[in-house]
Design a protein around this nucleic acid. Structure first.
Lengths: 109, 109
DNA sequence: ATTATAGTTGAACAACTGTTCAACTGTCAA
DNA sequence: TTGACAGTTGAACAGTTGTTCAACTATAAT
C-alpha cells in the first residue's frame, strides 16, 4: 500500500530545472533578499552615486555600504567608476528595474 | 570641503520606498532565495502534490519538505488541503509563475 | 611632505536559516 | 484496538549573512 502517485512524480521530474539553473535562480533571489541591497539598487535607478552619498541616503556607514556594493558588483548588477577621490556606482543591468517592478506588483495586492 | 552632492541625495530621498514596502519586498525575495523552495514552487506549477510525492521528487525527507511548505504557506504562496491521510499542496498565487519567468530571463543571458 | 578625505578590506560577532532527528498527531486498514 | 503510514512540530546543529570596527590604500589640498 502506497499513497504516492508515481506517475505524477515521474511526469514532473524531467520538467524540473537542472542544478546549475536552480542555483543561479536562487542566488539571484538571495541577492535581492536584503533590504539594504534593494535600497541601493532603487537609489541607483535614480542616479549614479558615490559611496558617501549612498551612505548618507541610507543612513549607514560607508563600510557597510561598500561591502554590499561589492556583493552587487560581483553579481554584475552594478558597476563602479573611480573619479578623483570618489567611486561612483551605477546600475549595470536594466533588468533589475523590471524585476523590482514585478515584485512590487506581487507585494502590493 | 565636502565631496557629497547634497542636491542629488535630497532629490532621491523622497523617492525611496517606505520601510514597510521595503521589508515586504525583501521578504518576498528572501522567500524565493532558496533552492528547495524554488523547486517546490516549480513542481507545484505542474501539479498539486502531497508531501510524500514532493519529498520523493526532490529527494528530501518529508520533514524538510514539510518545514519549507509551512514557510511558503505562511507567505500565502501555496495552500494545503487534507484528503484522507494525505495533505495536498497547490499554488495559491499565479504571480509566482510570472516572477519565476522574469528571473529566468534575467539569469539566462 | 603633510594632512584630511573617500573608500576598501578582513576579522569578529551576533543574528538568522535550513536540515536533521525524535517525538508527536491523525487517519486508514486489518 | 492495534499497527502502519502521512505529515507536523520543536529543539538542536552547522552553515551562512550583514554590520561593526580598526587598519589600510589612494587621492587631493595646503
Amino acid at each position: 500500500m502506497d499513497n504516492i502517485d508515481l506517475e505524477t512524480v515521474n511526469r514532473v521530474k524531467p520538467k524540473m530545472p537542472d542544478t546549475t539553473l536552480l542555483y543561479e535562480l536562487s542566488d539571484f533571489f538571495k541577492l535581492m533578499g536584503d533590504s539594504t541591497r534593494i535600497q541601493l539598487l532603487w537609489a541607483l535607478e535614480e542616479n549614479e552615486m558615490c559611496v558617501g552619498e549612498l551612505a548618507l541616503l541610507l543612513n549607514m556607514t560607508k563600510s557597510a555600504v561598500s561591502h554590499q556594493l561589492k556583493t552587487l558588483r560581483s553579481a554584475k548588477l552594478v558597476k563602479a567608476q573611480k573619479r578623483g577621490k570618489n567611486v561612483f556606482y551605477a546600475l549595470s543591468d536594466h533588468h533589475v528595474r523590471t524585476v523590482l517592478e514585478m515584485a512590487l506588483e506581487h507585494v502590493c495586492e
